[in-house]
Write a protein that binds this DNA or RNA. Structure first.
Lengths: 189, 189
DNA sequence: GTGAACATGTAACAAGTTACATGATTGA
DNA sequence: TCAATCATGTAACTTGTTACATGTTCAC
């Protein structure tokens, strides 16, 4: 999924400026699956307007530059649907944190412990953010992904908290004790 | 984290060829947090050898091109440690799947259901892979990230399985009933 | 006999980031 | 007075991907 699709998606819910789109990609629901900088958003909006996928109206404000509010057109909605009807590619997950953990044996143990403790705190903050943000979400799609984020981050938090000292002890990592009634494959060995 | 660090990390465990590095980044432990193509791996290895971070020995094989086996040098280990001692940046997670779910109200319900069912199956496969792969992992760092992956993917699987029909019913998404004893913040509302 | 796995490498290209340029307002 | 927020935009740059080039062996 590229920036164009992201912008179309956000604009399919409500009109917005480039600045607002960036904010939405940083905080709230959208922040879970994209990143976008001004350098990519502004050119994308301009180009899509030229192509007829968006319309743009300028609202002048005193002091600040004109605000350019973009709206999605029917053609834009068609484009968006097309982009969403392909089967989704694998989720992409990049984690420097996990990489550091994997390499922990080459590193200073104090550093590893500090990184773990820090990560536990970050996960708590994220969970709080998701819950706060979830209180404002009403549409089913939004509720679904909010719940998804909550489930996943919580699992990560439980796991990290239970294994804060993995690098200093020789104990087995504590696995999840949750049973998964939807998994019929008998893979646990 | 860039490809250079990834290669150094892999080579810090054992010598390998570019081809083998690519395979490791696709399957097994490393696959959880990176992607790499030949087009990025080969130039990176060449350059790092020029810079003294790696050494390279050629093993001729009949038929196939010479195998170039890379080893990390002390300088390379220093570089790796440096790259790992910075505090890890936020995990990056990109999901076309979640984006489609967010947009589900604009889409055909049958398509959304199919995507959900497909995702449940993919998560099962991934869980199986993680468990199979975990059986071979012995070092603490590896065990930690294997357990992390298992915890997170399982949570996602439970959640998706419980909400396969979210787009066709008006019910609240089923939240996680797991309690998190490590979370003292009282954020649940 | 066809495709996959083994094995390396380059050049063209795509995509997005960073840094810069500009400038008012508001709160600490 | 300094940083942050609002607000848009461009150019240079980085990074990495895709497609191509080359060639063997092995299993189906």
């Amino acid at each position: 999924m590229n920036i164009r699709t992201l912008c179309l998606g956000i604009l399919s819910f409500s009109d917005a400026t480039g600045y607002e789109i960036k904010k939405m990609a940083e905080e709230g629901l959208f922040s879970h699956f994209v990143e976008a900088s001004f350098g990519s958003i502004y050119p994308a909006l301009t180009r899509m307007t030229d192509e007829g996928l968006l319309t743009c109206r300028s609202e002048s404000q005193d002091g600040k530059p004109d605000k350019k509010v973009y709206s999605i057109t029917d053609q834009g909605r068609t484009e968006l649907k097309g982009a969403l009807t392909i089967r989704p590619s694998k989720d992409k997950f990049k984690s420097e944190f996990l990489f550091i953990m994997l390499m922990s044996e080459h590193l200073d143990q104090n550093h590893v412990s500090a990184v773990l403790a820090q990560r536990a705190r970050e996960l708590e903050d994220e969970l709080e953010m998701i819950r706060a943000c979830g209180a404002q979400v009403t549409k089913p799609g939004g509720r679904f992904i909010n719940g998804y984020g909550e489930a996943v981050i919580q699992a990560a938090h439980v796991y990290v908290s239970q294994n804060l000292d993995f690098s200093t002890t020789s104990e087995e990592p504590t696995g999840t004790q949750i049973d998964d009634p939807h998994l019929n494959v008998d893979a646990a060995e």
